[in-house]
Nucleic acid binder design. Structure first.
Lengths: 158, 158
DNA sequence: TATTGTTATACTCTATAACTATA
DNA sequence: TATAGTTATAGAGTATAACAATA
């Protein structure tokens, strides 16, 4: 380990670190502008796709389920999120955005200009190139991390 | 606002989000493997370049100076960092890595394979292309966010 | 008077463990 | 017995405000 990569690779690493830093700063800023913490914004954004069991939210956020209780509590206290029973399993509570939660999430998303605005500096051809390079960097298994992978019930109950 | 970008742009945005997520996960993991929090690892890494006044650390981490007191306290309790007086201004305390801190930081850095390993999937030509695209995305002012901008004293004392 | 670092406080996020109600 | 969600607890990061030492 500690093998030193070539200068080009190191520069790309640095650039990626800059992207990461900038992305996070803008995300926190946008969340803060709506009186949300980063974690609250992530949960709100996640639930805006579809209602989801508390446990699944924890899995998506990669944190312990007990933490989701508090985060959803705070969102629920502001009427951005609500807990609904799951008809098929009375142990489960489905966290779901309210109408106001959806509006807040839309405003939040609209203010997340980071990725859009700098991308406008690139031509369409360049964006396609960037897409291909990022895809290959991330591997074939990561292209829809936020949209698709949790559509299945995964329970196969009947 | 809330203007919907073209599908290509949205996909690139998604890919960047994946990069950001993965980078952070790996960073936290690497820090955790050395019994460090993310913030502690960032401070350690920052100080490994050179000693720095507490206040400057706060500026670099974009948080309030009072927080740095606690983070450096915890690093100092483990002999990874020490506080030194600044001969030129007795108000200032310079935070500096110890020998053990430097060794820890080196091991930490060596374990941060994320950016190196996936980059190996690209040819040198592709990495150069990626570098150019990221540079243009970030703008001309961001190419050395972690290495260079704090070399100046900024005080012009003498 | 302004600046550096610290303390005190409050809030949020986090993991762990124990609890409950369901399955 | 196992699972979903909660509670309680402790540690860490964060911002704010007030403070001592120094400039």
């Amino acid at each position: 380990m500690s093998q030193h990569a070539d200068p080009l690779t190191l520069e790309v690493v640095d650039l990626i670190a800059s992207v990461v830093t900038r992305y996070h700063e803008e995300y926190e800023e946008a969340a803060c502008a709506h009186n949300l913490t980063g974690a609250q914004a992530r949960v709100l954004s996640l639930l805006s796709h579809r209602p989801m069991p508390m446990r699944k939210v924890a899995v998506r956020l990669k944190c312990e389920p007990s933490n989701i209780t508090g985060i959803v509590d705070r969102l629920e206290a502001r009427d951005l999120v609500e807990r609904r029973p799951d008809p098929s399993d009375r142990r489960v509570k489905l966290a779901a955005v309210t109408e106001e939660g959806r509006r807040t999430e839309e405003r939040l998303r609209a203010s997340l200009d980071f990725a859009r605005e700098p991308l406008a500096r690139l031509t369409e051809q360049e964006r396609a190139t960037l897409r291909d390079l990022l895809r290959r960097m991330l591997g074939e298994n990561a292209e829809n991390a936020d949209e698709d992978e949790d559509c299945r019930d995964g329970d196969a109950k009947d």
